[in-house]
């Protein structure tokens, strides 16, 4: 069953076509990857899915399971980013976008704000409902930080964390929105091989533990080939190939357009 589908999505900026006729179909529970050379339109695709950009043409369809267990296909094209997050899509950013002046704990807590069931007055006056809500959010976030190995740093400012941990915090923050689909934009960027290995294990573990579907942009080919179920290859905004890692590795078009040229550059 598909969780996320894009139908003929086109994204144009002035005369530049950043994404051309993108058709993606991500099945529930799988780990899909989006690869392609720099400037191929990968991040733009993410921005269209998460509502940062309204596509010039095409549709984005999302089929989350709602609170009573019913799955409905929803057209999320050009909805506001926060509404899309509310429905169950969370993301990280290529160039880390943490709330720098806030603590680690606060960063994660912000992601639970969308679920508050009390208004600002009860929050300010600390009415019982608000106290319960805040306490629960705090407990959930502590558990999450614990799993991500960040619990000891919870009162540090986010900007004071080392680079790798900032990436982990971004993932933790995205998870705190309680997503069904997690979009990771180059999670291993700037990491050394050992850190990349750890990240690989972490992603797989999160996927099983949280029952997540993951869609990821990544340049580290080892990582992509090792853990992806499906791969989409983008070049100049067009999908030039899709399939399993084996199929992609043997696709002459990919080898020619991407792997062949770029193989020596990568790693």
């Amino acid at each position: 069953m598909s969780l996320l589908k894009t139908e003929n999505v086109v994204m144009q900026f002035g005369g530049v076509v950043a994404v051309n006729d993108l058709n993606i179909d991500i099945k529930k529970g799988e780990l899909a990857a989006l690869i392609g050379p720099n400037g191929a339109g990968k991040t733009t695709a993410f921005n269209v899915i998460t509502g940062v950009y309204a596509p010039t043409k095409g549709k984005v369809l999302f089929s989350p399971v709602d609170s009573v267990g019913v799955t409905n296909e929803i057209d999320i094209t050009a909805r506001k980013p926060n509404k899309i997050t509310n429905l169950g899509i969370a993301r990280t950013f290529q160039n880390i976008r943490l709330f720098k002046e806030l603590t680690v704990m606060e960063n994660v807590l912000v992601a639970t704000h969308q679920n508050v069931d009390f208004n600002f007055l009860s929050a300010t006056l600390r009415l019982p409902k608000a106290i319960r809500g805040e306490l629960k959010a705090k407990q959930d976030c502590e558990l999450l930080l614990d799993r991500m190995g960040l619990i000891d740093l919870k009162d540090e400012k986010a900007s004071s964390l080392p680079y790798g941990q900032q990436r982990h915090l971004e993932i933790a923050r995205a998870l705190a929105t309680d997503p069904q689909l997690l979009l990771l934009d180059e999670p291993a960027a700037g990491m050394n091989p050992q850190e990349t290995d750890e990240l690989t294990d972490l992603i797989l573990k999160l996927k099983t533990d949280f029952g997540l579907t993951i869609f990821m942009i990544e340049h580290h080919m080892d990582l992509v080939m090792e853990i992806s179920d499906h791969i989409y290859v983008l070049d100049f905004g067009c999908t030039i190939a899709k399939g399993t890692p084996d199929q992609i590795q043997n696709d002459p078009k990919v080898i020619e357009a991407y792997l062949g040229v770029d193989a020596d550059v990568e790693d």
Binding site: K80, N82, T85, A90, L102, V110, T112, H113, G133, E134
Partner: peptide, 30 residues
């Protein structure tokens, strides 16, 4: 009241907008 407000979920939402609007919106803050 200010201290209580700022240290509540709403206060954190305010600060998240100050820090990074795009990230705040992506975390579900309207």
């Amino acid at each position: 009241l200010m201290i209580l407000l700022i240290n509540s979920s709403y206060g954190r939402a305010f600060k998240s907008i100050r820090e990074d609007e795009i990230a705040a919106e992506a975390m579900g803050v309207g």
